[in-house]
Design a protein around this nucleic acid. Structure first.
Lengths: 159, 159
DNA sequence: ATTCATGCAAATGCTTTGCATCATT
DNA sequence: AATGATGCAAAGCATTTGCATGAAT
């Protein structure tokens, strides 16, 4: 009986993926979006990515699971999820493509390696107060800000 | 005798433009670049712009003075000036085109209106220390940062 | 005279769109 | 059944490139 023994590693992964899929389904339904294979898989990919991904990277990843998938679907899916604020879109300096990440609804910034383009999300924010006071000084209604810090990562420094 | 009377406003503008042109010539020569009409005019346009300009905007502006001018020349000029750090390149959020500005060699950031896209350069920087300590914590060699603050400007608030 | 910049046209890369078909509600 | 999502192909926009010509050193 499965209930009586420990799960194998593979079974555990499958179980987690199924729970994830359930979460994405709920998320989509709650937002008033249809549950489609493409959307669930894109959400899964972004949710498990360690840094923001470009549309073509997401597409490549998606194609491994769903070979009939299409790049325009990826773009359309991302736009839909963006409008619902389920994902976030960023454009890094000197990068012609936009990158997307799962919106974990935490205020954060990015530390970007200018050599390998690896992105490390950074929690916490040193400038909320500053942004507010600057806006009021200039007669702006504050709406947000973007901070990216650029440098050379440890691995690239060695090379 | 011109030396004896005050200059008219038009004469004054012409005089200033000629002095500007001289400055741009020196700048180009000092950097080891050839002095061409296109470069001098692009520099003039950017130097007098109140906010960062997109390539096509620069081109439009240039075409009024030099109707034979070409968009690829604008792009090539901007790339050349960028490599010599005479101009700076920015990509604002939700904007598919890059924008260029004269490099006044002052560290600054941008306050951007999310309605009309107007950009106000802001002097001073609240995060230099933060960036350094973050980099050292993550094993990065700091190289710079980018801070943009978004809001709705006074004029757009009224509408 | 040499080196480099330009105009033009064509190509590229990322992203968007029209349309017929298919899946989800 | 109705609404909305997908695949495919084609178009769109910003940017880059090849090449012959022309201008700056």
């Amino acid at each position: 009986m499965i209930g009586k023994r420990l799960l194998t590693e593979t079974e555990e992964v499958v179980r987690r993926d199924m729970m994830d899929a359930e979460r994405y389904r709920r998320l989509l339904t709650q937002t008033g979006l249809k549950n489609t294979k493409a959307r669930i898989l894109v959400l899964h990919i972004l949710d498990h990515a360690s840094s923001p991904m470009a549309a073509d990277e997401i597409f490549l990843c998606l194609k491994k699971i769903e070979p009939s998938a299409n790049l325009s679907t990826v773009y359309r899916t991302l736009e839909t999820l963006l409008k619902k604020e389920i994902v976030l879109k960023t454009t890094l300096m000197d990068d012609s493509k936009s990158r997307y990440e799962f919106n974990r609804r935490e205020h954060k910034h990015h530390l970007v390696c200018i050599c390998c383009n690896h992105v490390i999300p950074v929690m916490g924010c040193p400038i909320d107060e500053y942004a507010k006071s600057l806006c009021s000084r200039e007669g702006f209604e504050p709406a947000g800000h973007r901070l990216e810090i650029y440098g050379v990562c440890g691995r690239c420094k060695k090379e």
